[in-house]
Structures are given as structure tokens and as C-alpha cells.
Design a protein around this nucleic acid. Structure first.
Length: 260
DNA sequence: ATGCCAAGAAAGTCTTGA
């Protein structure tokens, strides 16, 4: 089962780019972030024509997540529990029925949190606390679980080309990294880090100041695996070349293959 | 210290991103 996460940065502006990548990469499951679309406006027909079931959780203009799957989906749910007043579309879950194992997959778009300090950073930290709670509940099922998406977290210095540029940024502040580490401490495996010990593997390059040309990137898109999922991990990768195409997203697809 | 770029909503630039 090939599972990918891709912050598409606007599905309307990137439909053809996504179709091209899906045809090449052939993921069974693709979790998308920043679709920036209401559910009714998502171009689902184009993806259904490729054999994908489409589940969206969108909103007007910003944020929004989706799951595309060629395998059967069960128990699709939306919204991160813990704050009924939160109207931002950042979380979707589904159980994917693999030929060997079912896998619970959460597609997430974690808040950016800038500027700091301020209400946006408070929202980010509160959201991460809610995610910690939700993850504890899911781990209690002792099933294969994949939490993937745009975490807006640079976990360690080796995950940024120029870490000193990020010292006061919400993506890298000690409180942000500590909250991410608390997630890992539940027993989760960072699939890319587990299989790519070297530094210099990035998933995001800013549109500005020639960040791509200078390889001034950061690694902020992650797939975290429960012990049962980590036991099934075969390969992983980052489709870096997608960033060099015409009108790209600022993120690239990141993926794993599970024996599920 | 700031703009550098890009998408979306909307018809002005402004908001947001990271």
C-alpha cells in the first residue's frame, strides 16, 4: 500500500499537476492539504476517472484537506476533536482496507502559528495538544496507524538548510518542537527520518528569494507510524523533482510503502 | 528590518502562507 502526503497549495490551480503526478507515482492513497476549496467545488470527477474515491473536508479560500484512495475506505471522519468552536478544516480520517491489513490514516494540516507570540501561535500549540490526545485514543486500538500531512514543524536542525533563519519562527521554536517530540514519544516512527539518516532531505522550498534554486529547503511534511504500521514499512521517498516543474506547489509529495 | 512569490476572494488590495 503506497500512501502519500502532498500539500497541493490550491486544488483549482494544481488539478493537472496533481493528475500528472498521480499517473506517474501511482499511490493507492493520497492525503492532500491546502485544497483551498469548498467540498462542492473540488474537481472530484477528474480523480474519480483515475479510479480514486474522493473524500474532502474543505472550506472557503483557505486550509482544507482531502483523501484520495484506490482502495476501499471505511469510517471516514472529519475534524480534530477537542474544540467545537474550531471551524478550520485541517483533519480527516479514514480506514483504508488493504489486501493484507486495514490501515487507519489521518490526513492533517497543522497550523502554521506565525507570527509569534500571538493568538495564531496559541492556536497552533492548542491544536497540537488536541492532536496528542486524539493520537493516544487511536493508538489504544493497537492497529496500523499513519498520521501524515503538513505538520508545519521542522523537527531538528538537520531538517533545514539554514536552521539559524528559523530560530524565532513558529515552525522551529522550542515549544513547537517539544510538542512534536511529545507526539513521537507516544511511540511513533518518523518514516522519512528512519530511512534517511542524512541531512538535506527537504519537502518544502519557499517561492521567494530563489529558495528552490539555492536548495534552501525545510522538512515539514511527515508520515508518523504506529508500531504496527512501522512493522509494515518497506520503502519511503520524497518526489523532489515535482518542485522544479511549471507552476509547482511549494511542497512536494512524500510517500511510504507498507506491506498492508 | 523588509520584500522577495503565489493562491484566493474579489474587484481594492488584502489575507494567508512558512
Amino acid at each position: 500500500m503506497k500512501i502519500a502526503t502532498f500539500n497541493i497549495n490550491g486544488i483549482k490551480a494544481r488539478t493537472q499537476a496533481l493528475l500528472d503526478w498521480l499517473a506517474e507515482a501511482q499511490p493507492d492513497v493520497a492525503c492532500l492539504q491546502e485544497i483551498k476549496s469548498v467540498d462542492e467545488a473540488f474537481p472530484r470527477d477528474a480523480f474519480e476517472a483515475l479510479g480514486y474515491t474522493v473524500e474532502t473536508h474543505g472550506m472557503k479560500a483557505f486550509n482544507g484537506v482531502a483523501i484520495l484512495s484506490k482502495l476501499p475506505l471505511e469510517d471516514v471522519t472529519r475534524c480534530l476533536p477537542g474544540d467545537d468552536a474550531d471551524e478550520q478544516a485541517r483533519w480527516i480520517e479514514a480506514t483504508v482496507i488493504g489486501p493484507k491489513h486495514p490501515v487507519r490514516i489521518c490526513g492533517l494540516y497543522l497550523p502554521n502559528g506565525n507570527p509569534t507570540p500571538g493568538p495564531k501561535y496559541d492556536y497552533k500549540l492548542a491544536w497540537m495538544q488536541r492532536m496528542l490526545s486524539r493520537t493516544r485514543t487511536l493508538l489504544a486500538d493497537e492497529q496500523a496507524l499513519v498520521l501524515c500531512g503538513d505538520y508545519n514543524i521542522i523537527p531538528q536542525a538537520e531538517d533545514a538548510a539554514n536552521p539559524h533563519n528559523w530560530l524565532t519562527d513558529a515552525l522551529y521554536l522550542p515549544q513547537s518542537r517539544q510538542a512534536y517530540q511529545r507526539l513521537l514519544n507516544l511511540g511513533l516512527t518518523d518514516a522519512i527520518r528512519a530511512q534517511n539518516p542524512a541531512s538535506g532531505t527537504y519537502t518544502y522550498w519557499d517561492f521567494q528569494a530563489g529558495a528552490w534554486e539555492r536548495n534552501n529547503g525545510i522538512r515539514i511534511d511527515h508520515l508518523l507510524l504506529s508500531p504496527q504500521a512501522a512493522d509494515l514499512l518497506q520503502t519511503s521517498g520524497i518526489d523532489k523533482a515535482v518542485r522544479g516543474r511549471d507552476k509547482p506547489s511549494d511542497h512536494v509529495p512524500v510517500w511510504i510503502e507498507l506491506d498492508a
